[in-house]
């Protein structure tokens, strides 16, 4: 475990190596959230009723702010890295290391996620005074603990899903196009574009049981107290079962894939 924690620290240190990039990233990585907030304020103003599908303007803005923060813990980069390593032969360097590549990439990108989270959070603190009226603040200690567990769960699930997608490169050589397409579907199914309860009631129940809902929709609902601790805990158990299923799939795909690996490059 010590080696993974050191890798976590090392990559966090790397993130701070480029000062200007860190400062620019602080602003740039939040532009999409800023636009989303403006977009929803305009929609609510033109709508005139003040409520859309049960969401008041403060609920909607809060939903997207919390989703945006949680999104930083969706670890997709491990999948992209493994796909690129398979394609250009760099996997040869890590395949013979006495550690789990899966864990190595998880901790590496968890440090990136933490760095991104801190950047976004700092930015939000800066702009909050301008949007304070649009945000709800009512988080219990229990919900906060559950949210932290959700953050970890979401990071593990997303990492395992993206690794599976990245490992497609063992068979198709170039998996990036498939991964980008999947990113759009995943964002949609996790409620990042629009809250899942905008869909028909029967589909919401099914979507909540899918692992993608853990990425942003369910945590945002928990934060907004629109989901009870009991419901949140029940769904957490479902997502933990998903982790075991995804881990088993990763082992199977890795074993089959490494037999196909051609280690391109001298």
């Amino acid at each position: 475990m010590q080696k993974y924690l050191y890798s976590f620290k090392m990559h966090l240190l790397t993130s701070f190596q480029y000062r200007l990039d860190t400062i620019l990233g602080l602003i740039m990585s939040n532009i999409s959230l800023f636009i989303t907030i403006i977009f929803w304020i305009l929609i609510y103003r033109s709508n005139g009723t003040g409520v859309i599908n049960g969401y008041k303007i403060a609920d909607m803005i809060t939903f997207f702010v919390v989703s945006s923060l949680f999104r930083t813990f969706i670890l997709s980069s491990g999948g992209f890295e493994i796909s690129s390593m398979i394609k250009n032969g760099d996997l040869s360097k890590v395949i013979i290391k006495p550690y789990s590549i899966n864990m190595f990439l998880y901790w590496k990108y968890l440090s990136n996620a933490l760095f991104e989270f801190l950047k976004q959070f700092s930015f939000l603190l800066l702009i909050t005074p301008f949007f304070a009226q649009y945000l709800t603040w009512d988080l219990s200690v229990h919900s906060a603990i559950l949210l932290i567990i959700y953050l970890i769960t979401a990071s593990v699930i997303s990492h395992l899903i993206w690794l599976l997608l990245g490992m497609m490169a063992f068979w198709i050589g170039q998996a990036q196009a498939v991964m980008w397409s999947f990113a759009v579907i995943l964002n949609f199914l996790s409620g990042m574009f629009i809250p899942l309860d905008f869909f028909p009631h029967w589909s919401v129940k099914a979507l909540e049981l899918m692992p993608f809902a853990a990425f942003s929709y369910i945590p945002a609902k928990l934060y907004m107290n629109q989901l009870s601790i009991m419901e949140g805990t029940y769904l957490l158990i479902v997502y933990i079962i998903w982790i075991f299923v995804l881990m088993a799939l990763n082992v199977i795909v890795w074993r089959a894939g490494t037999k196909k690996y051609s280690a391109i490059g001298g």
Binding site: M10, L13, I96, K97
Partner: peptide, 30 residues
């Protein structure tokens, strides 16, 4: 794997952005 080493002349293993000593310490733990 702990008993072998493979040095590839055209592939670097050391973190480009940090001093080598940081990678050595990591290697020690691995």
């Amino acid at each position: 794997l702990k008993k072998i080493a493979f040095v590839m002349g055209n592939k670097s293993e050391i973190n480009w952005d940090l001093p080598a000593i940081d990678t050595f310490r990591y290697q020690k733990l691995v």
